[in-house]
């Protein structure tokens, strides 16, 4: 007699699974904005210290991503967009994600302190705490304003980059923070408008679920209008200039027009064209942020090359 036993393949994660745990797409935005914060600062770091600063800011963001995936594994398992992430799919055990997140948090904060200064490291530690504890564990499942407050975590990187270079806080750093902070709500609410089943199935109190889709459209417009003064104000700071002002003017007019189009539509119109306007607004929001920070980088290069400042 032969015994045949079905043996489940044990979870054996590859290196790529751990990389995925760090949310590399979010990390790329963090790297770019932190790099801009570092480059536009009036004080410059030595090359290896500058590279280390960017690397450990990115690693800190990755650590908070791993902690978020550990905590939100139950939500991720329900949502179509996230169910293939390493923890809900079973490739990585939750305790491994927690261990990696905690270890990388410690390494990134200590190394940023050694490479640059304590203030930058303190800000990075606060960012990780804010994203993992305040946003993921506390606000995300509690309030429809989760996106607004949680957006602060994504807004810190350029400020940390600036502080890493200068060792102090400034109005410019605060405005770069405000640009990302005010940009996050319209960006995510546009996503929530066309990913509606996902959030409601997971029980996440997104504005679309708690206050309805009409209210979400109004919120997208209001937050977009509130974003404009912060985006434009950067142009008149020491890190701004004519290139930034011209780019910001065009981008903000376009962004407001997109928000007005979202506001004027109802669900019947949106369903008819499969949320084409909302999807276009969401895609443009990525371009919007990237272009603003690129313009700041261009201004920094111009100041160094042309004006010799």
């Amino acid at each position: 007699m032969t015994d045949i036993q079905a043996q489940a393949t044990p979870a054996e994660p590859g290196f790529g699974d751990f990389v995925q745990l760090l949310k590399p797409r979010v990390m790329s935005l963090v790297v770019f904005t932190a790099l801009v914060g570092l480059m536009v600062a009036p004080v410059h770091l030595y090359p290896v210290a500058g590279f280390s600063a960017i690397l450990f800011i990115a690693l800190g963001a990755g650590a908070s991503g791993a902690l978020n995936m550990w905590w939100d594994a139950d939500i991720d398992a329900v949502m179509r967009r996230t169910r293939n992430r390493p923890v809900p799919s079973g490739r990585i055990q939750p305790c491994e994600a927690l261990g990696l997140g905690v270890a990388l948090s410690g390494i990134s904060v200590v190394m940023l302190a050694l490479a640059t200064n304590l203030m930058a490291a303190g800000l990075l530690a606060f960012t990780i705490f804010f994203y993992a504890v305040v946003y993921s564990m506390w606000l995300k499942r509690l309030t429809p304003q989760n996106i607004v407050i949680g957006g602060a975590a994504g807004a810190f990187p350029p400020m940390i980059g600036w502080v890493a270079a200068t060792g102090s806080m400034s109005l410019e750093a605060c405005l770069m923070f405000a640009l990302i902070f005010m940009w996050t709500p319209p960006h995510f609410w546009a996503l929530a408008l066309f990913m509606k089943e996902d959030y409601s199935n997971a029980g996440v109190p997104m504005l679309t679920v708690t206050h309805g889709r009409r209210a979400t459209r109004v919120h997208v417009l209001v937050y977009t209008l509130l974003l404009v003064p912060f985006a434009m104000a950067l142009g008149w700071m020491s890190i701004g200039g004519p290139v930034y002002i011209a780019a910001a003017a065009v981008l903000n007019v376009w962004f407001v027009v997109g928000a007005v189009r979202i506001w004027r539509r109802d669900e019947v119109q949106a369903e008819a064209d499969k949320y084409a306007v909302e999807k276009a607004f969401f895609r443009f929001s990525l371009v919007y942020l990237f272009a603003h920070f690129s313009a700041l980088l261009v201004e920094a290069v111009l100041r160094a090359q042309v004006y010799g400042v």
Binding site: E12, P13, G14, F15, G16, F18, V19, Y46, P47, V48, A49, F51, S52, L55, L114, A115
Partner: peptide, 26 residues
């Protein structure tokens, strides 16, 4: 998969040591 993980961790450690060295020198 196990090899890819070990190789990745090994390369990360080597990169970390090199970064520590160059950062110290700088």
């Amino acid at each position: 998969r196990r090899f890819s993980r070990n190789l990745g961790v090994g390369l990360c450690l080597v990169a970390f040591v090199m970064l520590g060295f160059f950062l110290t020198v700088e």
